[in-house]
């Protein structure tokens, strides 16, 4: 009786000695509205490039265990505010006002350059200045919309901003001359054309340039540093490129 107790105690001490500690649970909020980055797959699970990258990061950080939860965009940030999530992701772009409220990662993990898209064959729109007096379709609440709004505030001649709705409606609007242009990343443009019939052209000049970042709760600086370090690792050994090609058919740092 006494001997087995001593043996048990020694084993327990051995565990303690090796520094075994239960991994900290990290609650990750993933957006549900942005294919192929953050969406829900056929089985109802969170899926996409953002999820895959974070799962890879999780594998390299044994002190954390990520729990994924899929919610709509606005709930991601509200969830960070309310302490429901420690880190969230849906291809967030950085800008000064957002950085004031939230903690951004230092390392970007995807390219988020955007272009203007127009009806096929149209040649009169090449830069954002060409949009003056014409209608532009942007998503309510997005960075593209805020760029257009800021342009209007700084210039006398304005762009007519139209806030879009369902994908099919936006495509239909542009292709049928109801709206003059939209804003998309190159990958989304390709996917839209594939889905609906190849009616959109992409303008080569950049509308906006940015990378995509994870967002953290303000106090999670340690978590942010750990994940950034893991991101650097997977960039260096090519895993990020592999994931990016798998989900988005393009390298992560290329459009």
């Amino acid at each position: 009786m006494k001997r087995s107790f001593v043996i048990g105690l020694l084993i327990a001490l051995a565990f303690v000695g090796t520094g075994y500690a239960a991994p900290r649970e990290i609650f990750v909020g993933i957006g549900n509205a942005f294919e192929p980055y953050a969406f829900i797959d056929e089985k109802g699970e969170p899926a996409g490039y953002d999820v895959a990258v974070l799962k890879e990061v999780d594998a390299r950080l044994p002190q954390y265990e990520f729990k994924f939860d899929s919610v709509e965009f606005t709930n991601l940030l509200l969830g960070v505010d309310a302490g429901k999530y420690d880190v969230v992701s849906q291809q967030f772009e950085r800008n000064p006002q957002r950085a004031e409220k939230y903690l951004f990662a230092e390392e970007g993990f995807a390219n988020y350059d955007k272009h203007i898209v127009v009806k096929k064959g149209r040649a009169d729109i090449k830069t954002i200045d060409d949009l003056v007096g014409k209608t532009l379709s942007v998503t309510n609440g997005s960075a593209s919309a805020s760029i257009a709004q800021e342009y209007n505030e700084k210039h006398d001649k304005k762009i007519a901003i139209n806030f879009d709705g369902a994908n099919q409606v936006v495509y239909d609007n542009i292709v049928n001359d109801r709206i003059d242009a939209g804003v998309m990343t190159r990958r989304v443009w390709k996917r839209t054309n594939d889905a609906f019939g190849n009616g959109l052209d992409i303008v080569e000049g950049l509308y906006s340039k940015s990378d995509a970042y994870f967002i953290y709760a303000k106090k999670e600086t340690q978590l942010r540093d750990d994940i950034d370090a893991a991101l650097k690792e997977i960039k260096k050994d090519g895993t990020l490129t592999k994931l990016s090609l798998q989900y988005t058919n393009a390298d992560w740092n290329v459009e």
Partner: peptide, 9 residues
């Protein structure tokens, strides 16, 4: 739309 720039949803 007012929350676009600063995320104050």
């Amino acid at each position: 739309t007012s929350a676009q720039i600063n995320y104050r949803f």
